[in-house]
Design a protein around this nucleic acid. Sequence first.
DNA 1: TTCATTTGTCTCTCCTAGCGATACAGCGTA
DNA 2: TACGCTGTATCGCTAGGAGAGACAAATGAA
Lengths: 253, 253
Amino acid sequence: MIDAVSSAFHILEELVGSNGPRGVTDIAIATGIPKARVHRHLVALTGLNYVEQVRDTAKYQATSRLFLLGQMTADRLPWLIAMRTLLGLLRDKIGHSLVLSVIEEDHVRVIENFRGDAVVDISSQAGAILPLHASAQGKILLAFGKTDILDNCLSKPLKRFTPRTIVGADNLRDEIEKVRNRGWATSDEEIEVGFRIIAAPIFGADGDLAFTLGVIARKETLSMEADSPEILTALAASADLSKLLGKRSGSSG
Amino acid sequence: MIDAVSSAFHILEELVGSNGPRGVTDIAIATGIPKARVHRHLVALTGLNYVEQVRDTAKYQATSRLFLLGQMTADRLPWLIAMRTLLGLLRDKIGHSLVLSVIEEDHVRVIENFRGDAVVDISSQAGAILPLHASAQGKILLAFGKTDILDNCLSKPLKRFTPRTIVGADNLRDEIEKVRNRGWATSDEEIEVGFRIIAAPIFGADGDLAFTLGVIARKETLSMEADSPEILTALAASADLSKLLGKRSGSSG
DNA sequence: TTCATTTGTCTCTCCTAGCGATACAGCGTA
DNA sequence: TACGCTGTATCGCTAGGAGAGACAAATGAA
């Protein structure tokens, strides 16, 4: 591991995860990296055109070049493009917001939102890490990921987000068993009052869980019956995507 | 400038600019970076989850995490999102492929393509650098960028891409003068036989040229008359985008 | 099979590049 | 004016990243 590179990305992530230009001191505090190092890196990144200094304020922000790097990455990952176009179409079809998340070791990270057509938009933040026991996507990982993830999750106290959050170890174990049997997961106001999520697993070429597809909506508009059109559609889509990924050799990330 | 960070991004760019997993030696040769260093960096980047090693082949490729970094960048650059949605709509309206490019110092780099509805897709590659004297977008930079860019461009021999490429210094000077006067540029089979491009400038908050909007199509389907709907629409759109950028303080990248 | 070549990876020493402490300059504010 | 911020510059120190080269595992040709 090269420390300088690690620091650089740490700073970039911090920069990109906030919603405005950031100052050197600010970033130093947020990341825990000494100010001098932060400054040195910001200057370096500016030289590489991945960061720019906002005139007047002297604060720093990421540039469109970093966006471009991501775009080019997507161009080289055909399955990513295919997934995105498919999910775009799916969103148009069912109207609810869709959330694509990637499995990273032992957590679930949101890659992209496809906003529904509801007046009030519901969407999670790209880059966000979802709670394992309270989100439908997290339950998918607990059910279809490596078994030690579930054990590890249960070894720590489960955080309560709403009155409906499952915080009992045995209850969660039962829930995960149910998810594993029927092949899809729900989060019924367990993470935020008034909102439901359903999620389905997407498997990679190696057969391992690679992504999850989530449908999120206000509870009044999203049925959680097994034969509801949303669930049937989501299951069909995730199966299609698994098939899509199966065609190639590469894996997730 | 931190060498390690510079190397890391150099390697990443190389990785992302090719269309498949790359080997260590391969990248070392392509980038001119010693093999040992490339390997060390790839391992480091793998540790940061921005790169993964493809099983079996042992080659490396960028992961969706890098894509995510770009997406998050876009989320923090409101004008980028606004531009993208506007251009998406515009593409649907005029049907031709659109190309959004960013001005980087003294060259023009493609950020994103919005593919038209033609059966045969025409699009440039995201990340590609466009020739200044032969592309419509390049002429925009020569006309509206700093004057030394034009001088510098003319100081070197102009590469001929097609029989119609302008390779005479005086001819190019006249052409650029014309572009500057009317506010838009064309490339009439000057870069590839059979294809036309028209481009318009998009100015940033500081009044400097920041982006260009290009329309690309087969020559039979794209009129280059000043009053053609494509040109009028493109000009209106780029003016709108300039206005959009004028509202905020940040700049390009 | 055998040999040769090339791959990704590792080991080693060397010295430079990145490090933190500290100082400094510019800007608002009190 | 004095203060408390900011971003930036300086400067020795040494840890950490550098390159050369060795190595093993593929790969391919004979």
